[in-house]
Structure formats: C-alpha cells, structure tokens
C-alpha cells in the first residue's frame, strides 16, 4: 500500500472529508459510550436533543458557536498563510481586556460610537499580540507555535493579575472578576430574554468579509501564495514578511473579537473562565472547514452543538461530557488525514 500523487487535484474530497471526519468521531464516541456503560444510541439521541431538540437548545448552540466562529476564522486566516497561530486563546483575552478597560464606564459615549471603538481597540490589542511571535518567526526563525502557546499561559496569568489589581470589581466580594460593562457598551440580544446576542451577527459578517478578502483581493491572493510556497512567492515579488505581518494582524484581530463578543454580548464582565479553550477549539473549527471562511460558520455551529449537546447528555445519561472533546479532537485528526487524499491517492499493490 502506498500513496501516489494525483496528477489532477480533486475537489470532491472537500465535501467528503468533513463527512468522513464526523462519521469517524461518532464511531469513536460510540466505543467510549459503551466503555462508559451507556448505549451509544441513547448517548447520541441525548446529544442531538440537547443541541437542537428545543428552541432553548438551538439558541444555546448558536450562542456557543459565536466565539468559535471568530477563533475559527482567526486560525483559518493564519493557517492559510502557514502562520501557525495557536495563540487565539491569548488574543481572545486581549480583546476581552480592552472591552473591560473601555466599556465599564471610562468612556461615557453613546453605543453607536462606543461599541465600534471597543471593537477597533480590541482588534488592535489582539493583532499586536500576534505580531510579536510573527516578527520572531520572520526575523529570528523562532517557531511561532511554541511562542503563541507560551503566550496563552502568560496571558491568563496577566488577566489574573489585572483582576486582582486595576480591573478588580470593588463590589465583587473578593472574586477575581471585573466590573460589568455599561449598557452602552453591551451588545444587544437578538431575541428578547434569550442569550443569543448581536455578536453572532458580527461573526457572520466577519466570515463574509474574510471570504471577500480571500477570494477577491490581492492580499488574499498573496496570503495563499505565501502559504503555498514562500520561496516562489518571494521570487514572484511578493513581500513575504509584510504579508505575514498583515496576516497576523487580521488573525489576531479576529480572535480578539471573540473576547469582545463574549464579554459585551454574553457574560457582561471579565473572569478567568471566560474561555473554556475557545482558542484551541478554533483550530478544530478551521480544519473542519478546510480553512474556508464560510465553512467556518457551519463547522463552528457543529462543534458548538457537540459541546452543548454533550453537556445536556451528561446530565441525563451520565456519560462524562469530555466525550465531546474526544470527538472534536478525533474529527480534527481524521480531517487532516482525509485532506491528504486531495493530493494523493491510495495505491494497493
């Protein structure tokens, strides 16, 4: 058995691969459910019911998908240029910090001015955070995977420091939490009395903008070329380092919006458990979407459904909700494997 390069790249895999990935992750989950002493079918039924069975479940899934769309886009943008940004988690918190700094009463401005201002400031913070590792990559050859990963740990400690100090809520009874954002800084709810908020619309808009950049602008073309073959790109006169820097700014900015949306749209304040790993899950979302920005929306909703469904399932069926994390990781590995067959075919001999 060996791999043989295809002469013509095939595109049908782009549709098949995500389906195979989902199927394999369900297979693994079935085995885990059996180990956990439950019938796989009852587990799956409970997951589906918990993720989409009721209006409440559906709203919850879309709410959970919102930050994942942002982090998924951030990863997709970076990975396409082969900039391995594993630091979306830290960039998310950078965005959350800016939201709290500007949105808790420091700037008494009307919402139409304050919200865009917070978004711009947050994007700048996230962008700068990724610019550092990118500079180290292009100028010193330091692997950005390790530096962005290490920055995630530094950032959460930094947030903890801020919540003990300047950003501490004086009325927080000693809990590490910030003050709540003022009404003019909050993103409105989409449905009265439900948790789904305007951040979801911004996320969809962001996906469409990224799609436009990718497909219709020179910058999108440059990012693809740099990712495909940096040497050829340099030879073709594309300023590779500058394209990398611009990619980093876009990617870091998108991840920071996840922080804005979670704080200003959902939680209302900054805490240490703002993100249960949205940055890392964004990698899975981006890969499941084959790095396609519109695909990111679908992949984020799917992954969010797994998590929301598994939470509900673990309450009723009693199988640990970590089954969703296993499924998501399995989907990632299967997806990367399946994508191999766009360029190769399996030859039996």
């Amino acid at each position: 058995m060996r791999l043989e390069p295809r002469t013509e790249p095939t595109r049908s895999i782009w549709v098949i691969a995500p389906l195979v990935a989902i199927a394999v992750s369900f297979l693994v989950a079935a085995v885990l459910a059996l180990i956990g002493g439950a019938s796989p079918l009852s587990v799956f039924a409970a997951v589906v019911r918990g993720a989409a069975g009721t209006q409440f479940a559906l709203v919850e899934t879309l709410t959970r998908a919102t930050p994942l769309i942002f982090t998924g886009l951030a990863v997709a943008v970076a990975f396409r240029a082969k900039l391995w940004n594993i630091g979306a988690e830290a960039q998310l918190y950078a965005g959350a910090i800016m939201t709290v700094v500007l949105g808790t009463g420091a700037l008494p401005l009307p919402a139409q001015i304050l919200v865009p201002m917070i978004m711009v400031a947050a994007m700048m913070a996230g962008a700068l955070l990724l610019l550092g590792p990118t500079y180290l990559k292009t100028h010193f050859g330091v692997d950005e995977v390790v530096t962005t990963l290490l920055l995630n740990f530094i950032m959460i400690l930094f947030v903890s420091m801020l919540l003990d100090g300047p950003l501490k809520d004086p009325m927080g009874l000693g809990w590490p939490q910030s003050k709540r954002v003022i009404a003019d800084a909050a993103l409105p709810k989409l449905i009265q009395g439900k948790r789904l908020h305007f951040g979801f619309i911004i996320a969809i808009g962001a996906a469409l903008i990224v799609w436009f950049i990718n497909a219709r602008t020179t910058f999108g073309y440059e990012m693809r070329t740099v990712g495909f073959n940096p040497r050829a790109a340099r030879f073709a006169g594309i300023p590779v380092n500058w394209v990398m820097a611009k990619t980093a700014l876009l990617s870091g900015g998108l991840a920071a919006l996840a922080g804005v949306s979670e704080v200003a749209g959902l939680k209302g304040n900054l805490t240490l458990d703002l993100s249960p790993g949205f940055g890392y899950t964004g990698i899975v979302v981006a890969m499941l979407a084959v790095l396609h920005p519109v695909g990111v929306i679908a992949a984020a909703i799917f992954v969010a459904a797994m998590f929301v469904g598994a939470d509900a399932m673990s309450r009723t069926v009693g199988v640990p909700n970590y089954i969703a994390n296993v499924m998501v990781a399995t989907a990632l590995l299967t997806m990367v494997t399946a994508m191999l067959f766009t360029r190769f075919r399996l030859k039996l001999r």
Binding site: L32, F79, V145, Y280, I283, Y322, N325, V326, L332, V336
Partner: peptide, 17 residues
Amino acid sequence: HVTGIGITLLATSLTYY
C-alpha cells in the same frame, strides 16, 4: 504542527474522559 496539536487535544480529552 496540526497533527501534534490534534494528538495533544485527543490525548488530554481521552485522559479526562
């Protein structure tokens, strides 16, 4: 890069499960 991150996610989540 991607496979390694995937292995970390898989190994960690299987352990927690």
